[in-house]
Design a binder for these strands. Sequence first.
DNA 1: CTTACTATTGCAACACTGTCGCAACAAAAA
DNA 2: TTTTTGTTGCGACAGTGTTGCAATAGTAAG
Lengths: 125, 125
Amino acid sequence: MKRRNTPSKTAVLSALEQAGTALSHDKILASIGDSIDRATVYRILNRFCDDGITHRIVADDGKQYFALCEGCSHEAHAHNHFHFRCLGCDSVECLSSEVTVGLPKGYRAENFNGVISGFCAGCEA
Amino acid sequence: MKRRNTPSKTAVLSALEQAGTALSHDKILASIGDSIDRATVYRILNRFCDDGITHRIVADDGKQYFALCEGCSHEAHAHNHFHFRCLGCDSVECLSSEVTVGLPKGYRAENFNGVISGFCAGCEA
DNA sequence: CTTACTATTGCAACACTGTCGCAACAAAAA
DNA sequence: TTTTTGTTGCGACAGTGTTGCAATAGTAAG
């Protein structure tokens, strides 16, 4: 499946680049304006994940967040790091600490999803 | 807020006890039959979480799972352990390994949510 | 430049999860 | 038994994410 360069795709990509952190779908939509259809943004993001351009985080609010992959190749995605979601400003950022978790025998891990929610330095009263 | 003992509450509790693992809302509903309303089950589960009887896990499918708390007091909930969701049989179980993650300065953690998805020993081809 | 191919888009509709308001009900205490 | 008030059932709702389909527009070939 060959990919094409479209204005929508570029807009989503630059929104993620500009933010620097993980963005929820609606944040992305708000960032690029409502000129692009909801469904299109979802499809673009899913394509990005398929292609290894972004990784998907499901936070404890049940919503998906997307962040640009940095330093991980297409073959070896190493997203075993945590994310922090601020309950005050609703921002999601990647934490640097990597974690390895032991699984029971015979288990095979496919995806890692670690989120800690709380209050960031700015929102902490 | 005093709690009352009702058949619905007992049914949900025994469903969780019988399962031994974490259950999604619809699994619980299926387990106790459709004699109880959807909204009621949600309310019962939220009450359980408020009271520290269960803890809530949000898996990477965006759904909430509930598991009985074992060995954690009302005051000091220590749910910083991982959960494993099998992509084959869709079961969610608690992993034993406890994890501590370092947060940036000034950050305060409120909730820990770690889920690893993959295939369990039974579903691994 | 023109044409053909097909990835992508927009629109609408849909499934699903979780919540909320309100009137009716029922557990627990008086 | 009566009273109090926590719970339930029903309906409606908001939000998230997906899908089908016709129309559009990249992209490469002629």
